[in-house]
Computed example of a mutant assay.
Amino acid sequence: MNKDKTIEKKKIPCALTIAGSDCSGGAGIQADIKTMLSLGVYASSIITSLTAQNTLGVRDIFNLTRHFLNEQFDAVFTDIYPDAVKIGMVSNKEIVEGIVENLKKYKAKKIVVDPVMVSTSGSVLLQEDAISILVNELIPLATVITPNIPEASKLSGLEIKNRKDMIKAAYLIDENYSKKSNGRPAILIKGGHSIEDANDLLLYNGELTWFENERIHNDNTHGTGCTLSSAIASYLSLGYDLKEAIKHAKEYITNALKCDFDLGAGSGPLNHAWKITA
């Protein structure tokens, strides 16, 4: 006689990306999903904006409504609750306010905020009236923020030219949040824009950690910031602590850059699938 057997469900780590869509596939939501999939994580997405862009730059941006943003949050968090969240492009005040409200409502955890202000090609992606909300309301909810050097300069008010400036900037940013009661994120300043090296600096619980990496001489860097932050979120969802998550994320992006894809007429995309095609 056959007995009913209960099928044991396998727990799959889940990560959520909240960002803009890149129709060319190299950055934004598309890069995040590719990264998460490659790292063995189930990816869900909440789209904040639609962009018309390619390897040459951003042509146009269409922002979704606050109502539709809320509907996406409800759909994701009431069904497949994420183990970690990555937040990328948030272009206007209304969207940032909506994200803050919903992250609090659903008690989201392990939040990686990539404070995207300007694209690699130089296009402004964050409106001025949204910056104060990003800085004062969204960033305090983060586990870690991942500004590049231009973004860290804007957040700290300090022009960054070298490693010493990166350290000063990290402490200045941290000081701003040490005075706030609603959150104090770890700060990872990405050194990819530095002329010296590609080393990143983490300030976490008052401790500085350098992540030393070789500079990859590759002009095809479209979506590197999106990829790193989504990789960190992926490793956090897999249960790694923050330093280990950053270390592994750096290794992932370094190898994705080494593939040196040559797609498009401008700054081409990375090989997000290198781990599963090697």
Rank of each mutant, 00 (worst) to 15 (best):
K190R: 07
H222E: 04
D174S: 15
Y171R: 15
G206M: 04
A142C: 13
A142Y: 10
A170I: 02
C226F: 06
P140I: 03
D129P: 09
L188V: 11
D219T: 03
F211C: 05
I195E: 14
K104L: 14
N220D: 13
N205R: 14
L126R: 09
V135N: 12
E128V: 02
A130N: 04
K168S: 06
A152W: 11
S119Y: 00
G122S: 08
L228S: 07
E214A: 12
E214I: 09
D114Y: 06
K105N: 08
N182I: 15
D165T: 02
K179Y: 14
G206F: 09
V116L: 02
D114L: 08
K107L: 06
N136E: 11
A169G: 01
V112R: 07
Q127D: 09
P150H: 03
K109R: 15
D174N: 15
I139S: 10
E207R: 15
L201D: 08
S230P: 13
P115S: 04
M117W: 03
N176L: 08
P140R: 13
S132Q: 13
N102A: 13
N205V: 01
N148V: 06
L172N: 07
G183N: 07
K109C: 09
N162G: 02
K107Y: 06
K190F: 02
K109F: 04
V112Q: 07
T227D: 02
D200S: 14
H193L: 04
K154D: 07
N199M: 04
N136A: 07
I149S: 10
I216Y: 12
K104H: 12
D129Y: 01
A169E: 05
E101Y: 11
V144R: 15
K190M: 08
A231T: 12
K104Y: 03
A130M: 06
D165A: 04
L202D: 05
I149D: 12
K190T: 15
